[in-house]
Amino acid sequence: MSAKDFSVDITKPLVFQVGHLGEAYQEWVHQPIVSKEGPRFFENDFMELLTRTVWWVVPIVWLPVICWTLSVALRMGVSPPEAAVLLLIGLLIWTLLEYSLHRFFFHMYTKTYWTNTLHYMLHGCHHKHPMDALRLVFPPAATAILCIPFWGLIRLASTPATAPAIFAGGLLGYVMYDCTHYYLHHGSPSGQPAKHLKRYHLNHHFRVQSKGFGITSSLWDVVFGTLPPAPKTQKSS
């Protein structure tokens, strides 16, 4: 069967189906199914379990790591005011990383079997099933793997004493990102800036998916010119 003739059966595990869509994958994955019940990824129960993460696991796992790395910097002679500045630098670095990953990696164009499959597991599943509560945050194992190159880059660009504090700031930024992302989909904000962020993010999902890549902030969308256009308002007669 050719890719043009292939259709996904959403009642069956999806991961090893979506690759067969070929170039049609891009259109399929950006037609969301708005349901709180998430799809099944794998036939194997253990593999399926690894894809599901409740949101509160993220702060429980990573906040102690943040406190520990910050304490390492303090023990190595970084003063508390210096540590606060380095923490903010790490946060800023994370916001750029958040934007860059979302724009250039999570929204990469794919058409082959394995690139479609990889994209679906990383981010495509979120656009296809945006209300799947158990796949809105990264599993800790996946985050730990991504922390390795992040730590390596910070270590190369800073000193042994300052690197842990910058890393702590970047990791804090990640925790804020994942918790914010979950809240934007399942929370009901009553005030600003949360209401703006929710509208901004849902606009990315349901109106202009090629714009608005910031989650915790629209800062880098402004810098790099990827702000979504304002919705058109109908003129009253």
Score class of each variant (00 low, 15 high):
residue 4 K to M: 13
residue 5 D to Q: 13
residue 6 F to Y: 15
residue 6 F to L: 08
residue 7 S to R: 12
residue 8 V to R: 04
residue 10 I to H: 09
residue 13 P to V: 02
residue 14 L to T: 01
residue 17 Q to I: 06
residue 17 Q to G: 07
residue 18 V to H: 02
residue 18 V to I: 01
residue 20 H to E: 12
residue 22 G to T: 10
residue 23 E to R: 13
residue 23 E to G: 08
residue 24 A to W: 01
residue 25 Y to H: 04
residue 28 W to F: 11
residue 28 W to E: 05
residue 29 V to F: 09
residue 29 V to H: 08
residue 31 Q to E: 14
residue 31 Q to L: 14
residue 32 P to A: 11
residue 35 S to R: 09
residue 37 E to Q: 15
residue 37 E to Y: 14
residue 37 E to R: 15
residue 39 P to A: 04
residue 40 R to E: 07
residue 41 F to K: 06
residue 48 E to R: 10
residue 48 E to A: 15
residue 50 L to Y: 04
residue 52 R to S: 10
residue 53 T to R: 00
residue 56 W to P: 13
residue 57 V to G: 06
residue 58 V to Y: 03
residue 58 V to H: 08
residue 59 P to G: 09
residue 60 I to H: 10
residue 66 I to T: 02
residue 67 C to R: 15
residue 67 C to V: 14
residue 67 C to M: 15
residue 69 T to P: 03
residue 73 A to Q: 01
residue 74 L to V: 08
residue 75 R to M: 09
residue 75 R to F: 05
residue 75 R to C: 06
residue 75 R to Y: 06
residue 76 M to C: 05
residue 77 G to T: 04
residue 78 V to R: 00
residue 83 A to L: 06
residue 83 A to P: 11
residue 85 V to D: 05
residue 87 L to A: 05
residue 93 I to M: 10
residue 97 L to C: 06
residue 99 Y to P: 00
residue 105 F to S: 11
residue 105 F to H: 13
residue 106 F to P: 12
residue 106 F to A: 14
residue 107 H to P: 14
residue 108 M to E: 10
residue 111 K to L: 12
residue 112 T to N: 14
residue 113 Y to K: 06
residue 118 L to S: 08
residue 121 M to C: 10
residue 121 M to D: 03
residue 122 L to R: 03
residue 124 G to D: 08
residue 125 C to D: 07
residue 127 H to S: 11
residue 128 K to P: 01
residue 128 K to G: 05
residue 129 H to D: 03
residue 129 H to R: 07
residue 134 L to I: 10
residue 135 R to I: 02
residue 135 R to M: 07
residue 136 L to A: 15
residue 137 V to T: 08
residue 137 V to A: 09
residue 138 F to D: 00
residue 139 P to C: 02
residue 145 I to L: 13
residue 146 L to R: 02
residue 146 L to Y: 03
residue 146 L to Q: 09
residue 148 I to K: 02
residue 149 P to H: 12
residue 151 W to E: 02
residue 151 W to T: 04
residue 152 G to A: 12
residue 152 G to P: 00
residue 152 G to M: 05
residue 154 I to W: 00
residue 154 I to M: 02
residue 156 L to I: 01
residue 157 A to G: 04
residue 158 S to H: 05
residue 160 P to R: 05
residue 162 T to R: 00
residue 163 A to C: 12
residue 165 A to M: 01
residue 165 A to N: 01
residue 166 I to C: 00
residue 168 A to V: 01
residue 169 G to Q: 02
residue 170 G to E: 00
residue 170 G to P: 00
residue 171 L to V: 03
residue 175 V to Q: 12
residue 176 M to E: 03
residue 178 D to R: 04
residue 180 T to M: 10
residue 180 T to S: 12
residue 181 H to K: 13
residue 182 Y to T: 12
residue 188 S to Y: 11
residue 188 S to L: 10
residue 189 P to F: 07
residue 191 G to P: 07
residue 192 Q to E: 14
residue 194 A to K: 04
residue 196 H to I: 07
residue 201 H to G: 06
residue 201 H to N: 08
residue 202 L to N: 00
residue 204 H to I: 10
residue 208 V to L: 07
residue 210 S to K: 13
residue 210 S to W: 11
residue 211 K to Q: 07
residue 212 G to M: 03
residue 212 G to A: 03
residue 217 S to N: 07
residue 218 S to H: 06
residue 219 L to N: 00
residue 221 D to A: 05
residue 221 D to Y: 06
residue 222 V to I: 14
residue 224 F to L: 14
residue 232 K to H: 11
residue 233 T to P: 01
residue 234 Q to N: 11
residue 235 K to Y: 11
residue 235 K to H: 08
residue 237 S to W: 06
